[in-house]
Design a binder for these strands. Structure first.
Length: 101
DNA sequence: CCGTTGACCAGGC
DNA sequence: GGCCTGGCCAACG
């Protein structure tokens, strides 16, 4: 494993989120000592569709991404529901799905 | 070198 | 829960 820039650190952490659970940008940011915005940016430009489960990251309120990079929030919702994540409404997961990792 | 943008957050009300 | 504010910071033009 060579040098990891900040984005790769984010991706390797996201890969550890178990199926059926989600975590927050802030939790990842805190663990990597970076700003939550930077985590959001890294996922926005994530080049590893299918390799990094970026659909398992939500904001502090449990809200999914309004402009999820791979097909919009509807796709993110589908991916999560397929894994058993329950939703409170169209844009929010039930908070008991959120883990801190 | 700015000014702006954005998959954010903490805290207050 | 919602709405604001101030803070945050990489990237882009």
């Amino acid at each position: 494993m060579g040098m990891m820039d900040y984005k790769e650190k984010v991706y390797s952490l996201v890969k550890q989120i178990p199926k059926g659970k989600v975590t927050t940008y802030g939790a990842i940011a805190k663990k990597l000592s970076m700003s939550p915005r930077t985590v959001g940016y890294a996922l926005h430009v994530n080049p590893y569709e299918g390799k990094v489960p970026c659909h398992r990251v939500v904001n502090r309120d449990g809200r999914i991404a309004p402009s999820f990079a791979f097909g919009g929030s509807e796709i993110q919702k589908e991916l999560l529901e397929k894994e058993g994540v329950k939703f409170r409404d169209e844009m929010h997961v039930e908070k008991d799905n959120i883990i801190t990792i």
